[in-house]
Design a protein around this nucleic acid. Structure first.
Lengths: 249, 249
DNA sequence: AGGGTTTGGTGTGAAAATGACAATAAGTTC
DNA sequence: GAACTTATTGTCATTTTCACACCAAACCCT
């Protein structure tokens, strides 16, 4: 069973008996689809795979798979992510379930969409067999996707935009040590506000939260004044939340 | 097929083959469950039904049903609501999908949870056959529910608390004409903040949005000074949203 | 070495939003 | 009409937001 594989038999459920027989309800399936976000310093990216089989052969799609009968939904989403990227223990959040009757041409399949935030540098193209067909796409250059994946992507992007302002999940997209400029660029490229965030106000605000710790070392390898590096202090954040703190940018 | 009915056959999917045979994936089902919120002027309420059959016979549960093979998820949620209350066209929002392997004792069933906001006065107990077993419960007096419905209810309540502050959905719980005090009581009982909202500040804020229109008539039948009645102006809200307005209380 | 280039880093003031506060008004009941 | 109940209204201090511009520190190049 590979990710986003198709089904091995001709099977159209759509005209089934919908009245008495309860058994007829057990002829549908569910899948998970992951919207895997990454950030390369400039643009927000999403990891897509190119389908090898019909339906939608050669189209780009969100990585996903059917959920095993004895597998929890979250576990399935984690599995899909790990099979594709080799990563475990990353940020994962359920967003929405898509269940239009005709969304899958080969049967009744509803899919639960997840967003995943990974540090793009941790992703190695060689992690999975279909690596050659997996590629980062700029978030606004994804084109026509398979199934209803454009709609799913939109929903997930909206969720990300909201969530990134109200929870410190942006850090999931950055390396452990980052500069304030990098952090701000992340927010700018996720939020895409009409005006970019103001540098001074942004730094004031984020530093006033006391969630960043200054690293002793500086940025290296840049052809200009190097910036201070910071780390996000997860522990402190936990404490603050207990005290009623609400992250807000 | 009745709401929250059980399955007519012995059927345990949990030890199925999970490897090759794709057909084995088409042996699961999905359902929708509705968290129907209402407000009676004092407390936030949720409409529960008492189960007539095993499993969880006699336990209180969220109204829900299996999704028909040719039925969209939203449609199923609307159907469940209508069968129970006779209401159509009310506020409905998908919240989250629950899919733990063992959440349903009779098979693999994942469920999509919805919240629904209705005007409690519109609800007539006689609307459906199971009306006798449907009852409004105070939100903090629901006790032990069937399945994982306590968890579902918690998630949906959290969502309601957030959403009620960022979108004008509170009005869905009130009659078309309401007083500012009623509106504030609604917010107080949904949000349950450590301190109740300040009357003067609340009125200032809500009126400054210019979303309420004053009715010519006054409150009637109260043993004290009658209050002005207001209506929510949906149209204006639509315009304001287009201009970038963000509802926020 | 020095000038050019690039990004890093910082403070102030005006405007708006928030939040705490209490007295009078308009009905009803008895 | 006296007692009671809820409705209605404004001010001020504090905090937050937002717009805005210059020098500093490193590198590159010649």
């Amino acid at each position: 069973m590979t990710i986003s594989s198709t089904f091995g038999r001709e099977n159209n459920q759509r005209n089934m008996d919908t009245t008495g027989e309860v058994g007829s309800f057990f002829k549908s399936a569910f899948s998970v689809d992951n919207v895997i976000f990454g950030f390369d310093g400039g643009d927000l990216k999403v990891l897509l795979i190119q389908r090898g089989q019909a339906p939608f052969k050669d189209k780009w799609a969100l990585p996903g798979d059917l959920v095993y009968p004895n597998e929890d939904l979250n576990t399935a989403a984690e599995r899909v992510l790990e099979q594709l990227t080799g990563l475990r223990g990353v940020y994962l959040e359920q967003v929405k379930t898509f269940g239009a009757v005709n969304r899958h041409p080969l049967g009744r399949v509803i899919t639960v969409a997840y967003i995943t935030l990974i540090k793009i540098s941790n992703y190695t193209v060689t992690a999975a067999s279909f690596a050659q067909s997996a590629k980062w796409h700029n978030i606004d250059e994804v084109g026509d996707l398979a199934f209803d994946h454009n709609e799913i992507l939109e929903s997930c992007l909206r969720r990300l935009k909201r969530k990134v302002r109200t929870a410190p999940i942006g850090f999931e997209l950055l390396p452990p040590k980052f500069t304030l400029t990098e952090l701000q660029q992340l927010y700018d490229s996720v939020l895409r506000l009409p005006k970019r965030l103001d540098k001074r106000n942004f730094r004031k605000k984020i530093l006033s939260m006391n969630l960043l710790v200054e690293c002793p070392e500086m940025q290296e390898g840049v052809a200009h004044r190097p910036a201070k590096l910071y780390q996000f202090d997860r522990e402190k954040y936990g404490q603050f939340v207990n005290e009623g703190f609400i992250f807000d940018i």
